[in-house]
Structures are given as C-alpha cells and as structure tokens.
Design a protein around this nucleic acid. Structure first.
Lengths: 249, 249
DNA sequence: CGGGCCGTTGAAAGCCGTCAACGCATGTGG
DNA sequence: CCACATGCGTTGACGGCTTTCAACGGCCCG
C-alpha cells in the first residue's frame, strides 16, 4: 500500500501513540513500515474467541469491538471496548489463549502488528518510545477494567452511565476522534446495558434523565458532554490517561 | 536466614509455583537465594497506595491483602485479593505507579522479589520455567479481574458468593492451603460485601441460605465447599487455572 | 409491505439496600 | 472482677432502585 494511503487510515493509531509517548518521525516511519495490510471486517465479526489461540497483535484502525462473555442462560457481560488506535492480542508470551471473545460492533479496519512485538516488549532498544507507549497502553487496559469494576460494583445506574461516557470520550480524544466533548459512540442501549450490568429499559430511562438535565446530548451515535466538570463530580471520574502520562519511566 | 527456615515460610510460594509450571530443584534454589528477607506486617497495613510508586515486586508468603479503592462518600470497592504465594508489584516497566491501593486484611509475611525480575520477565534465559510461571500468573491476575466483572455485572447475590468461594478455594489450593474443598477465608462479611457489590446485610442473609441448603459450611474463618459440582453449575464457574495450565507457550 | 432492529413507555414485582437494634465474643482499664 | 467499648454477625421492617413483562412507534431494508 502506498505510504500516504496507509497514513491516512492510521490517523487514529498515530494520534493515540502521540498521546502515550513523545513519538518521533523515525518512530512513525518504523511503525508504518511494520504494520501489515489493512483488513476489513463487518459488524458482528468474532476477532477472538475465548479459549482459542491469539494469532498475533493487531491494531484497530477504525471501528469498535467488544470484549464479551455469555452465561449459559443468555446473560451477557461486556468487559470493555477496543477503540480505534488501540491494540489487542499483544502479550508477553507467545501464542497465548484469549481470555475473552472479541466481537466487532461496527465495521472495523485493523492491521497486523506482529513485526512491532519486539519494540513493544522492549526487546528492540532502538525504539524506546514505542516500548514506553506500549507499557502505558497496557496500564490503561488494566485501569479500564478497574473502572468497569467500580462502575458496576459501587455506582448507581446514573453514575455508571456518566462514568462510562467520560471514559469513552477520553479514549476517543486520545485517538483524535473527540474534540474534548463530542464523539461518536456506536453502541446500542443493549450494549450499554450489558456493559454496565443494567437492563435495557433502565439504561433507556437513565439516559432520558441525563438528557433532560442537559448533562449530555445525544443524536443517533453522536454524544456530547455538556457539563464535563459537573459530570466528573457526579461519577467521581479521574482520567487514567492523565495519571499514566505522569509516569517517569 | 538459614535455608530451612526460609523454605518453611515459603511453602505457599513454592506450592503455587509448582501449580504454574514444572519447576526444577535448580529453579527452587535460585528462587530461594533470590528472595529478600521476610518482612511482617499487621492487619490493616497499606502495602501500596494508589498513585504512588511501586517500590518493587513482592511475594506474599502468608496472609491476605485487598486491592481496594474508596469513593468520596465512603463506598468501597474491593477489586481482588492477593493470597499467599501470589505476587504484587511485578510489572514490565520500572518504577510504575500503583493503580490501586493494597491493604492487608490479616497479618502478612512477605519478601522482596526484585532479584527475580529479570527471570520473571524473560530477560534471563537460564530460568524459562520461572518466566513461564510468571506469565501464567499475570494471565491469572487478569482472569480474576474478569471474574470479578462477571460476578458483579451479571450474577445474583447468591451466584456471586458461590463464584467467589470457588475461586478462593481454587487459589488456596494452588498455594497448598486447601485440600480441594476446605480452606481458611479471613474475610469479614463487610469485605465480602465490598468485593461483591452488595450490602453487608444481604451478604449475611445469602450466606445463611447457602448454609441452610448445605452447599457450604462455615465455622469462623474456615469454609468448606460441600457440593462442588452443584456449586460450579450454579455459578457457572470455570477455573482459569485449568485453562491456563493448558497453555503451550 | 412485511419483518427486524432499536428506542420508548407503563405497570407490576422483586431483589437488594437502608435503618435500627440486638447478641456475642474479645479486649482493655479501673 | 466487672464495666465498658469495639468489632462482627444477625434479625426485622420498610423502602427503593432496578428488573421483568408487554406493547408500541420509527426506521431501514429486502
């Protein structure tokens, strides 16, 4: 693929890398030359299946995916999301097994990142910023899981939705997909419910409350945070990206 | 410290290592010679504080600790536990910040494992089984977080307690602290509540139901799983240690 | 135009939380 | 030795957040 075309499709990836570490032009060249060809999958594609071998690390260039598990009676839990610019399947060990399934919830463009593994894992001393970015991304992945536990463990439905919206806005912002308060959220109320441990009906009613109070605005998939200060108070949201960016290392 | 005394205090650690990978006598000698002196802390000690630098990797030799976070109004969420034989603060990156606080909930004996870092991270090719054990332990840590999300996201109070007891029993078993169905669980009902996203009162009543149904038995800190098959069905529990042990790596 | 997906609404029920009080064991100090 | 305080488990009553069930409307698409 011509470099210009790949660059155009990788803007979320590059934006996110820049948010994680001070990446140089050399780093970006290395990054671009290491990525595999762009692959495209429709909504509903199973990118990973729980318990099966992970073929290798991938970057999502566009679209969203869900880490998910079902109980036998049909209850579903969504553990978290993989957004544009974010990686999945990148693991210290070779050929690991997936701990959860990963399903696209939009059309997705992604690319292989196997050639980047050594740099990410710090085995290649030529690209310390890529190593650093990967380490921070790993820490963020854990922070998002902890967020998820706080939300469903000790917050009300109202707080859960606010907390999640703030997190998604922040992650979209890192990918250059939010201006700080408006972003595209391609999630149905059913997905929100299965993520937040609520019923669809209750998600619906709680969203209506948030809209009525003018705290958020929602038009089809576009979400706007109207009063971020107040919302951060409500949900006691503290952004892990801020914390992680202060890491010396 | 004389080797025999250290060995005696490290039995949970060694037991857990053996459950993670086929450790040789050479590995154990290396392990024992790498560990720092045993340190002892009383109940309620803060081993890590959220947002502060992690001093280095440690192994818990005896006692339990809680990963925890508070909301400003006093609500507490417990993310998970660190049990005997398990590590904390072991991270790819140097001098990372703690994502959660870690508080002992019993008297605890632990030791420094900084000298083991290279072997754990695979930087020392002489001890591949230690590397493997560490990788599996890391995967288990994530699996336990996912367990936590499943429990509080999509299970009833009844299922949550069963699921947690099965997990704790399994982890104690790896440390040689359970015969497969009986183990010591030094958690108050308040801790269980803050772990499972429930109120103390409801934990109390649900435990009574489980005891009444003879599915579990409880005497002070001793818990006995009476009908593991049935309990595993109830909570849809699948043991990650079984899954992880099948990894080829 | 039928069908499916998605959002919305109303009514009823239930799981679970809150509040308050009590018993019991342990420990401490007078 | 007893009074008192503290931590933990237990119980009852009450209320509410949330779920379940059911139905309807809008939209897109074959």
């Amino acid at each position: 693929m011509p470099r210009a075309a790949l660059l155009a499709q990788s803007s979320a990836l590059i934006s996110r890398f820049r948010s994680l570490a001070p990446i140089s032009e050399t780093d970006i060249n290395f990054l671009m030359s290491s990525l595999g060809p762009v692959e495209r999958y429709p909504n509903g594609t199973e990118l990973l299946r729980e318990g099966e071998v992970i073929p290798g690390p991938r970057y999502i260039l566009d679209g969203w995916a869900l880490r998910t598990r079902y109980l036998s009676d049909g209850r579903r839990q969504i553990f978290g999301f993989v957004l544009p610019g974010e990686a999945y399947g990148l693991c210290e060990r070779e050929r690991p097994l997936a701990l959860t399934s990963l399903i696209t919830c939009t059309a997705v463009a992604l690319c292989d990142a196997s050639a980047l593994r050594p740099a990410c894992l710090g085995l290649d001393p030529d690209f310390p910023q890529i190593t650093r970015a990967h380490q921070r991304a790993t820490a963020l992945d854990e922070a998002y899981l902890l967020h998820q536990i706080i939300r469903i463990g000790r917050q009300t439905a109202y707080e859960r939705l606010v907390h999640l919206f703030l997190e998604l806005n922040s992650r979209c912002h890192a990918a250059g997909l939010s201006d700080g308060s408006t972003f595209e959220m391609p999630l149905t109320q059913e997905v929100l419910a299965d993520c937040l441990g609520l019923s669809i009906v209750h998600v619906n009613r709680t969203l209506q409350t948030l809209r009525r109070e003018q705290l958020i605005e929602q038009r089809s998939p576009i979400v706007t945070i109207r009063d971020k200060e107040k919302l951060m108070m409500i949900a006691e949201y503290s952004d892990p990206q801020v914390a992680v960016s202060r890491w010396g290392n």
